[in-house]
Write a protein that binds this DNA or RNA. Sequence first.
RNA 1: GGGCACGUAGAUCAGCGGAAGAUCGCUGCUUUCGCAAAGCAGAGGUCGGGGGUUCAAAUCCCCCCGUGUCCA
Length: 854
Amino acid sequence: MDPSEYDLPFFHRQGFHRSTCVVCGHAFWTLGDFDRCQEAPCREYGFIGAPIFVRPYSLREMRETFLGFFEARGHTRIRRYPTVARWRNDVFFTQASIYDFQPWVTSGAVPPPANPLTISQPVLRFIDLEEVGRSGRHFTLFEMMAHHAFNRPDHEVYFKDRCTELCHELLVEKLGANPKAFTYKEEVWEGGGNLGPSLSVSALGLEVATLVFMEYTRDGENLKPMPLTVVDTGYGLERFVWASHGTKSAYEPVFGEEYDELRRSFAPHDAAVLIDHARALNFLLTDGVVPSNSKEGYFARLLLRRSLRILGRVPEAPDIYSILERSGREIARDFPEVGMHRDDLRRVVEAEVERYGEAIERARQTIRRTEDRIRSSGGHATSEDLIDWYDSLGVPPDLAVEELREPPPIPNDFYSLVAARHENERPTNDYVEVTQGLPEVPASVPKTEVLYYLDPYTVSFDAHVLWTEGPFVALDRTYFYPTGGGQVTDRGHLGDLEVVEVAWRGPWVLHRLERPSPFRVGDRVRGRVDPVRRTQLMQHHTATHLMNGTLREVLGPHVWQAGAYKATESARIDVTHFRALSKEELRAIDRRVNQIVREDRPVKSYFESRAEAERRFGFTLYQGGAVPGRELRIVEIEGFDVEACGGTHCTHTSEVGAIEILGVERIQDGVVRLNYASGERALEIREEHEEILREAARRLGVPVSRLPEGIDRLLAEIEESRKVARDRRKEDLGETAERLLSDPRATETVGPVTVVAARLDLDRTEMMELSRILSREAGRVVILASEREGRGTLFVGSTAPGISAANVVEAAKPAFDGKGGGSPAAATAVGEPGAPLTTALDAARLAARGTVAA
RNA sequence: GGGCACGUAGAUCAGCGGAAGAUCGCUGCUUUCGCAAAGCAGAGGUCGGGGGUUCAAAUCCCCCCGUGUCCA
């Protein structure tokens, strides 16, 4: 980056000079007298016992001081965003305050909620999980305080100079730090295809702020200026508090009394982990993460299980609920939403604690058994086994060792060895672009006015063709609903041509016709939306909102929509929930959702500013994921459910008709899927089901009400006849056995051994069974031959000591070119097609007799 | 999203190429005034599903489905 990028008038006004760090080689600006930048490790911590700021601050005081400072300087304070970044599909968690505004605000597509703005955003970082509690300064969740400005060519708020000035003023004038203590180190920030200069602000070894100025887009080697430049800053709240105390670790001043309380029962490291994890969990669970074995849910599970492990080591430990509760109460003073659904949160945790107990118990048993097996074969468990057990059973090594009689040593780098196993895994990220297969529309074409938002009942309209290519047509206005938000496309006609698909392409709605469009730009066309299809889709969409609201009500506020699909045949919704639904829950859901349908509540759809909507309804608006735009379209089922949604909806709940739940399944850990139908389809399905029942009853010859008993009777009959057939076959084989034993051509006795040999075309299992009957007594050799599809099979069973069936078969194989083998007790061989089976039988008989003689 | 482990009798699991097993539970009988217990006898299995390899597959290979777990 060009040095002029950092040469700010502010530095000159204040008398800063530029030096180069003798350690890291970076240039920096400072008022002090340093040969190195003040960031660790170039300079070691110097603020322990010598606080950077004039007086100690609590977390709350510091947050308030920061936000107040920027408010007083023209910034608008905005509320935190959820810690789970549902509006993005590239990350699970909000990892910096700027994430709140990516991608739409930073790309310029949507204006920021305020400009400039200030925020304290709780963010999650799992990278340093192992360092938490150990380093004295790492946290899983911390608050990133920030001030952001978004500059458009026509509206410059502020950029590098003013930003740096504000930062310095905060540090020096507001917090009373020594102005000469700081270095502003020149760095380059790059991410998401954008880059720009950045300044890393440090004092006494501690980095207190990063000021990032996004201004270029990378285009290979060249840099292109961005149309919108962004001031992205980050100030760690916990660090500020720490710097104001100058204590040895950051945990005492940040966690205060809570930490002291836990210290009575736990080592400092464990106490810090417990309280850190409790804080992160309170935010995660409040923001709707349900612990599970994948995606964001896994991180919640990880934190909870790590906590449980620590608690499990201390007999007098408080339970996990009281720790979460205590932490939650503390957080709720500043973030009231965290305290709102405590009972629900507790249920989620209870389910998870129970699962953990079960998993560990199962794993303990497995480990014990496995060790027994290893020992009985003369070995002993190895460190490698410990890694196996952790990876596949989830047993931490210290617990595994407790189970073992001969424990191997736990490697010091245990978790690195686990990580090494996962090194070569390649995650696949196959994105399906929605716009795939759609043509490029010239930017000069005016955007489509979408009318279905305003009136979902109008299905016939006139419009002008603005653009057309192949089968695609863009109109100036349309009532056709394009695929989106989980609702499938409308169909219908443009003129006389069928519309087979409708899709968004940027700001245009493209109608795809059954064949190349005959229309010309400027043509006036008549559009007719298939009203039956539209009605069904509307019903299914409104039904989905009703279902979502009902699920939150019945199961609890931890329920979030994780996906939905609305087609004509049926609809489905996937929601986060910690276990499969019970019959009772399902019945309650069915009753409640249909009750709301019958109550005929108004369903209002309207546009509202994003900020206002978020203020009124909170982030639960975004059930279907993030929605772009300054204005949100709100779909509000009065007194029941509010979501940001672009779909077509009924205006009253009774229009949904009825909701018929077709099935429930747990599609993955932590996610439950419900399938259902509404409207006309619900009735159809009900009729189909009734017809199936009637037909089944008719075929069984019982009334519908007696169907279950009828089926039981039928099953009993099948069972009975199977048994009869089996007994019959046994009996037949028994008779055959009697016959063979009394037939001198088949049976001969040689000393202590009776050899039975016969050719009877039986199948394999029958031969085995017959042999078993014949050789009930010891000292029998049974040789059976049969031919199936031209190939001879020879079966030998032996209970005669010293005579191995396998050897007998081996001896007979050459006689009919057979392949096979077996054990001393039983053996089989199959000959080539047409090979002499009788010869083989004789050879086997000879071999058996010969063995006895020898 | 990926790696690994697991899926066998009602339950918990063994077997890991040659004739499907153990323990508990269940049924009947013996013993007892009755119960518990013990003894004897017995019922109960498409070895998750589907392909393939093999003379032979619960066992080896592939694909699904389900469960668990670790990692992003």
